[in-house]
Design a protein around this nucleic acid. Sequence first.
DNA 1: CCTGGCTGTCACATTTCCGTAACAGTCTTG
DNA 2: CAAGACTGTTACGGAAATGTGACAGCCAGG
Lengths: 226, 226
Amino acid sequence: MKPKILVVDDEPEAVELLEFNLKQAGYAVSAAGDGAAALKKARAQTPDMVVLDVMLPEMDGFEVCKNLRLEPATSRVPILMLTAKAAEIDRVLGLELGADDYLTKPFSPRELLLRIKKILARGASAERPREQMRFGDLVIDLPRHLASWKGKTIELTATEFKLLTTLAQRAGRVQSRDQLLRDVWEYDSLIDTRTVDTHMRRLREKLGPASKHLDTVRGVGYRFME
Amino acid sequence: MKPKILVVDDEPEAVELLEFNLKQAGYAVSAAGDGAAALKKARAQTPDMVVLDVMLPEMDGFEVCKNLRLEPATSRVPILMLTAKAAEIDRVLGLELGADDYLTKPFSPRELLLRIKKILARGASAERPREQMRFGDLVIDLPRHLASWKGKTIELTATEFKLLTTLAQRAGRVQSRDQLLRDVWEYDSLIDTRTVDTHMRRLREKLGPASKHLDTVRGVGYRFME
DNA sequence: CCTGGCTGTCACATTTCCGTAACAGTCTTG
DNA sequence: CAAGACTGTTACGGAAATGTGACAGCCAGG
C-alpha cells in the first residue's frame, strides 16, 4: 500500500518534476493543475497527503487549503505548502490555514522527500494542533494569542508564547534545546542554545504558579507536564 | 463539482458575456432574462450563487432579491448585485435587501471573478457577516457604513471603516498584518505592511476612547478586544 | 481646472524585546 | 566529598517592532 500523494501546481513542468521524484521514492501520485480540480480530486481520492503550490490561477493555494480543511472528508489530510515568500509562512502554518509544513522555492528533491516522510510518519498517529488547550487552571488560546491562569491573562511576548505553545502541544515529551530552536525560532537558526534557557526562565517567571508544568530534564531539554 | 451560478439580466449580450467569462473560469452557469424566470430557476436548481442585475423589466432586481430571501429554499444563496448607480448601494447591501456584494457597471471580468471567488470561499463555511455589531458603547453598522460611540457618529474613511469591521468581525483573534492586507486591501496587495500601522493609528485617533478595543500584539499583529 | 480629502510611503522617535555573556547555584559522578 | 557539568539568574547593549508626524500622488466633486 503506497501512500497516495496529490500534487497541485499549475506549471506542468513543476508537476512533472514532483511526480517523478515522488514516484521514484515509492509514492502513488496524482496531480491537479488548479484549485477546483484539486478539491475535486482530494474529495474523490482522499489522498494521504497534499503537496500544494500557493500560486495558482483563479483559486489560490490559501483558498484551496481553507476549503480542504472545511470539508470533513479532507479536513484531516496533511498539507505541505510550496510558498514563495517567507512573509507568508506564519499564515500558512497558523490556525487560519493549518498547513502541516511548508517549503520555500526553490527546494531540492531531497528536502521535499524529508518533509513528506516526516509528516507521514507522525500523521499516522498525531492529531492536528488544537486551537485551545487547557491544563487545569492554565488555558492557552492560540488564535487569541492569550494565555491565562485562573482566568487572569498572562502577558507574554511573541517568543515566549510560541515557546509555551510548542511545549504544550508536545505535552509529556521532552524537547531538546535544538529542537526548540528549530520549532520556535524557525528552521535553521544560528542562535546559541543557551538562549532557550533564558527564555524558559522568563516564561517561568511570568507563568508564576503555572510554571509547575515546565520541567527541566537535565542533560536533555525541557518538557511540559500536564 | 463546479459551483452553479445563476445569471439574471435582460440584455442578451450581457448574459452572453457573463456566461462566457464564468464558464471560462470553471463555473456551471444558467441564465434568466427576467425576474419571474429567475425565481423559478433559483427554486429549481438552488444555485451556489446568483448574479443579479438591478435593471429588469417587470420585476426589478430589488424585488427578485427580496423574494429570494423570503423563501427558505433560496434564502441563504449568496447574491451579487449589478447596479448602475452608486446611490443604490446602501439599499442593496442594507438590511432590507441583504445582497452579499455589488458591482457597479461597467466592470472588468476580473473584478467579477474576484468578487465571486471571495463570496463563495467564505460561503462554504461562515455565515453571512453580521450586519450590526455592538461592543459596549461602540456600535458598528455595516449596511449604513457608520460607526458610533455613545450615539455620536464617528467619521471614518472607507479604508478605516473596513479595517475596523474586519477586526471587529474576528473579535478576539489576532490578525497579522499580511492577513489584514489581504482582507481589507482586497486581493493581491503589493502594499507595504507598515501601511497597516498608519491606518491603525488614524483609526485609533478617530475612535478616541473607543480605541481601547484595539490591541497591538507585538510581533504578531492587531486584535480587537470586546 | 483646481481643490480638498484620502492614501500609501518614508524618516524619525520610542518602546520593547531579544540574544549573549558572566556569574551563581545545583546536580551528578567518581 | 569534591570536581565538573549543567542549569538558573542577572544585567546589558543592540536590534527589531511599533508609534508618530510629514509629505506627495491621486481621485472625486465642484
